[in-house]
Amino acid sequence: MTKPLVAIRAVAKNFGEFQALKNVSLDVWPGEVMCLIGASGSGKTTLLRCINQLAMIDSGGIWLDGELLGVREQGGRLHRLNEREIGRQRLKTGMVFQRFNLFPHKTALENVTEGPLQVQGRKADEVRTEAVELLRRVGLSAKADSYPAQLSGGQQQRVAIARALAMKPMLMLFDEPTSALDPELVGEVLAVMKELAKSGMTMMVVTHELGFAREVADRVVYMDQGAIVEQGRASEVLGAPREERTKAFLSAVI
């Protein structure tokens, strides 16, 4: 019997008075492509950041590949993991940011090789070969020696995807990957993500691209005010929503 790759149980996260996540529970299965939709402030980005431990949850638990994230249970109490252990857990996930966050002082190729070389300590020639192949896969072979400032937004985001893939993650997290792009550049990034989904990668995608969700997602999760309101197959949630709040959101977006 297979186990979920990510198991989220009763997770809550507050920013001061504001409840970003309220009692969220969710499973993500190996090979699944999940799209998280909802208005800004609904908690979908926070959920992604908690899985990658860029934000620490206040209560509940997240298990990745069977391992509890961020804390260790010992003698009936939870103890925070140290930075090194958190870094090791982060290697299982790759993150793609809304604003790309490429390292501006490094070329496209150096952005991709930085993690494998510096963090994983792998051999330079092997890492280089893989990075060249990854850049080819995202259609940027010709741009290996360009600096981020010389690339368009769509090209930068594709390099960012290659950089995340270079760490060989089990799970890819996409935080509104096309929201900062000019409309004509959205397609090239979505195409790379589609190809990645087809290759069997487990993906969680926070997005406003409902067309992408309809076409690629195995499951769509609609969130509102820090809670999951409705989830199911893309055709169900997007085509025939049951909840009033989902209907209201979808009619506002389309």
């Binding site: 870094g87 930085e114 510096q118 963090v119």
Partner: peptide
């Protein structure tokens, strides 16, 4: 975001400072 991107590829605080933040 630079610091977060460095963390996301598994870098610790000091390595992120040395490799990513200080050069910039």
């Amino acid at each position: 975001g630079q610091y977060e991107a460095a963390q996301a590829i598994g870098m610790g605080r000091l390595r992120a400072l040395r490799r990513i933040v200080l050069p910039q």
